[in-house]
Amino acid sequence: MTANQLPGPDELTERERKTVEALVFGLADDEFVLAERYTEWQVRAPTLESDLALSNIAQDELGHARLWYDLLEEFGYTESELLFERDPAEFTHAAFVELPFEEGDWADAVLRGYLYDTAEQLRLGALEDASYPRITDRIGKITEEESYHREHAQNWLERLCDDPEGRENVQAATDRLFPHALALFEPVDPDREAAIQELGLRSEPLADLREQWCAITVPFLDSLGVRAPVSEDGTLPELPDDHGRSSAHTGHWPALHEELTRTYRELDRTDTPTITSDPDHAQ
């Protein structure tokens, strides 16, 4: 693997850099937007304990987003350009993470966490031997935290599905979210997808990861008495038109982006203050 190692951020060729970007933007934007939605549960979760747990998870995801955005900053982007001044249409997350929560829909929150973190485990696993060390540096920390998230989500799903009303709510959330979750395995830039593997960044094609994801999530949901919208012969539901990535986002995203950039715009800010140390150097 070391023979094909890519050099540091300043020595990459144009093609290599664009390929790394196509990979990392998707990872960063997914984490960032999911975290943004998660924080809506703060002071609103069912119990004080679940409030604390979900807050932890939201902060973990924000931390992961920061790790990935920092990597993009090594290519010369600033946080302002990446988050506050980027056209919302240019964001590359799956629309799955931008969908709003209906009031009180805790089933959505824990199911979304479960589907996302299972996907995350697989896609990070496929990056463990990535040829760009700045990526592999980050995998260990993130994987460890995501496995705690998955456990949290699974426990909640089991508890909710023990209750008839709870199971109904999980089923409704599954019907709505499952087709959107498939977009987690869509490429950020279809033209660069082949290069991501050629350059040794990701060890498996997205379609294989999606298959593995279905092989985990569908039986698990089934064990809870919840049916994923997959037909008997394994045919997956169609991707919604506005599924994000390289396609359009739902109307919920520009509205969310508008809210989260409000202070920045109202204060005419042109940069963002850094108040904590660089995680690459923090111990």
Partner: peptide
């Protein structure tokens, strides 16, 4: 203000603060 924070670091700090307050309540 978690949402309205004008930087990623501030957002993290605000989220952690709100979480701490819930922990204090607990």
């Amino acid at each position: 203000f978690i949402r309205q924070s004008p930087s990623l670091d501030r957002k993290l700090a605000f989220s952690a603060k709100v979480q701490d307050e819930i922990g204090h309540g607990q």
